[in-house]
Design a protein around this nucleic acid. Structure first.
Lengths: 227, 227
DNA sequence: CCTACCGATCGGTAGG
DNA sequence: CCTACCGATCGGTAGG
């Protein structure tokens, strides 16, 4: 088979094309995190990057393919920005705490300019069907599955009470993550950071791996949530 | 001053115009709850109702004015659909419980086809500026202020522990409301209804107004959350 | 409430 | 990677 490649001046090498693609996705994640995945338009993104619309679209083929690539890029960024604080940590309650702290931190540091990318994408696509919705739901599900795993290990280790329902703990932890985004973005209330950390500590129990209950003040216990 | 009114056949009486306006808003709330307030387009809404675009726009003047009217209508629907179960209830913890239950119920009954209207609108507009964002934030704030009032009363009544931080309780309750929408819409998990009710009970303490602590199983206490 | 329009922008294609 | 297009739709206006 004979492949004929016509190299005209505006055509970039494949290495250069890869850089262009990466730049599109980096900017695409930023825009989508603020304006939404639907508000991410090809024309606007092309203008931002000094490209023509068709030049940009050539990298992906369709807006939906662009959205999927942006979602995947956001997931890479999220895992890259959180894994440093979690991967080495002892599985079980310590890891669970580290994951929660890393989540709060990535919102606090504004890794995505619009707060948590997946919180926004989930809300935007939760009533639709199609591959973008499936990708978002799948990636959120991965994160929640990982949380659940470490809740289970924490229970097995005796760091959370026996009879704790892991799905319930994950559900409530996720609720506090959503509440952080809500407080920070809608109410512009920086107090939400401390509130979320407090709520998570209350669910997971104090600061130590197996905290001694205090009796001097009304003291919440670790999530004693029977299934 | 002389006002000349030319009554031509396609012009409706003001009573008929009011009905048309109400129909536009009812349909607008439905569409916006699923597609978002930005996804609510004048052309689509007009087609749905058998109107021309300009005929519809005449009732509001601009898309932003339409969005604001839709937000207000959604608030009316929300308060109408929840107040029946809350207004007569004793202020303090009983009222707080009733408000939480009514919130869950309005999502369960799909009063809005896309789940909680304000959860979706808040997420869509939280990174923007302008009157729509302000209206959404203001209405959500009203709801949260009312929750906080009844947390305060519950503390004063001794139904929640002394030293409880009302803002923290509200923050965590709102988190569970957001988690319900998340579980139900993104994961399509009906279990989320029971999980939210369980989480709220855990925050507010059992079923009775001042539940006796149990000691046979790990038992969460009412939200003993010091400020 | 309508028809008839406006300029701008949408996603996407042809062809190089 | 570009220019030059396409039809569809966007919010909105003029005028009746």
């Amino acid at each position: 088979m004979l492949a004929i490649v016509i190299a005209v001046s505006p055509r970039r090498s494949s290495a250069e094309a890869g850089q262009t693609r990466a730049a599109i996705l980096a900017r695409g994640v930023e825009v989508a995190s603020v304006e939404g995945l639907e508000g991410l338009t090809i024309g606007r993104l092309a203008t931002d990057l000094g490209l023509s619309k068709s030049g940009l679209l050539g990298h992906f083929g369709s807006k939906e393919a662009l959205q999927l690539a942006v979602v995947d890029t956001a997931a890479e960024i999220f895992f890259r920005e959180t894994s440093g604080d979690t991967e080495g940590v002892t599985p079980g309650l310590p890891r669970l705490r580290a994951m929660c702290a890393a989540w709060v931190s990535h919102v606090e540091r504004e890794v995505f300019p619009g707060g948590c990318f997946f919180t926004a994408a989930a809300s935007e696509f939760d009533d639709r069907d199609g591959p973008v919705r499936d990708a978002v739901a799948g990636l959120v599900g991965l994160w929640e599955r990982d949380l659940r795993l470490h809740v289970r290990l924490a229970v097995a280790d005796g760091d959370l009470p026996a009879g704790t329902d892991p799905d319930q703990v994950v559900f409530e932890l996720v609720g506090q993550m959503l509440a952080l985004n809500h407080g920070l973005r809608l109410h512009r209330d920086r107090e939400a950071l401390a509130r979320t950390r407090r709520a998570m500590e209350r669910l997971l129990g104090g600061y130590g791996p197996a905290p001694a209950p205090r009796t001097d003040v009304p003291q919440p216990r670790p999530a004693g949530i029977a299934g």
